[in-house]
Nucleic acid binder design. Structure first.
Lengths: 223, 223
DNA sequence: TAATAAATTTAAATATACTTAAATAATATT
DNA sequence: AATATTATTTAAGTATATTTAAATTTATTA
């Protein structure tokens, strides 16, 4: 399985989870920074290998096999992130950058060793779930998107699912980290913004950012 | 720098060190498991990039730049080996297999982090020296090849420089490990064999094997 | 040294992963 | 609905890293 193939499948998987909608070739091409023509080419080849379902001009979906490969790569990515963070003390955006490369050249054998070394963690340092060897992801049903949280309550941040440095910079400079507690001041229904209070700061988040942050309600505890 | 390029340069470097003689394309092709035609092709391309010195039908040598790249890859290889051995407890031949892949996809940044984490080690678990960031290898002048050791003396094994699993299997099943002490019984000048005694075992090593094992004389100590 | 064997190089082809430019289809706008 | 815009696909071409088969050079040996 080449690096290009793995990345192609991974993008489809991630976009599917993120926007849970039709994945068009243009989007994939944009994320991978290749031309639409190259993406079309790849889609055809992967369809021939039964890794994606593809019909001309229609959105792409992963086959069972394609899904498994994507999850296997994501597992390795998140295990590396955990390892680099825990053991080598790299920062949150450094681990992403390095894992993005290492994920493709890691044997299942080594991934297992890393997993065992870390005590088979279920989430990585961003709070993203780590798929098991069999590809299973155990979803935490109690988590919800910040954009869907109710105003007037306290929540714990449990997942920062962005990948861009800009996102992590924003989060860390505003004390939004996995584990920090935030108060939802208001949900603006028209422009879809979320106003939160963290420590003494009032922050207004746009819909895109609020959709990258997962939270969990704090049970009636004063902070 | 592609994986193919890095491996090509690495083979030249390693063979040069190993047999300190003319490196012919056929040898490189055999080690890399590619055809002679592919090796010729690569030699031309790398010569154009000033990484190797190449004249038709003549042996290959590395340029200064080619040497640097080879040493950088070898540094990453040996740092990974050390890390995987120390931290994840992989075996001596497992670390080689995994490092062989990881070496090509490791940023200088990550290599440095690994080096610092390990306390900037000067040798890997096989006893092979780890080049510094600037490419410098500090040679241990007191080490010599087992094939050059003098009969009637005790030596400490300080380096097992083979790469094949068979070699490591042979060593470990005969208690030849880095740090173990051996007695040189006899050097056979005609067939170039070395007879050693380790613990209670007498072992006759052929020239090839004895040339992969580095030792250091033990100062007048009874064992 | 001439013949033979072995190694190396060249030439022609292939697969992968792209690119640019043009054609075509789908979507949005007036 | 016709037109304009946008997205997608096709076609042709490129770079890298290979292959096989044939040609050539170098090395060996009788």
């Amino acid at each position: 399985m080449s690096v290009s193939t793995e990345n192609f499948l991974k993008v489809i998987y991630m976009q599917q989870k993120l926007i849970s909608a039709n994945i068009k070739l243009g989007k994939i091409a944009a994320v991978l920074n290749i031309t639409n023509a190259a993406a079309t080419d790849m889609a055809k080849k992967l369809a021939a290998r039964k890794l994606v379902n593809y019909t001309k001009y229609k959105p792409l979906t992963l086959t069972q096999k394609g899904n498994e490969i994507a999850l296997n790569v994501i597992r390795k990515h998140r295990l590396w992130e955990s390892f680099l963070y825990e053991t080598l003390n790299l920062s949150l955006h450094e681990i992403h950058r390095e894992a993005e490369i290492l994920e493709h050249l890691t044997s299942d054998f080594l991934a297992d060793k890393i997993s065992k070394y870390l005590g088979n963690p279920s989430t990585d340092p961003h709070g993203d779930p780590i798929p098991a060897i069999n590809g299973k992801i155990i979803p935490d049903k109690t988590q919800l998107l910040l954009s869907e949280a109710s105003a007037g309550h306290n929540y714990t941040v449990c997942r920062l699912s962005g990948i861009e440095e800009e996102f992590f910079d924003f989060c860390s400079s505003n004390h939004i980290t996995v584990g920090s507690i935030i108060w939802i001041a208001k949900q603006y229904s028209v422009n879809k913004m979320t106003e939160i209070k963290i420590k003494t700061d009032k922050i207004l988040l746009n819909y895109e950012f609020a959709n990258l942050i997962y939270v969990k309600q704090v049970q009636n505890k004063k902070i």
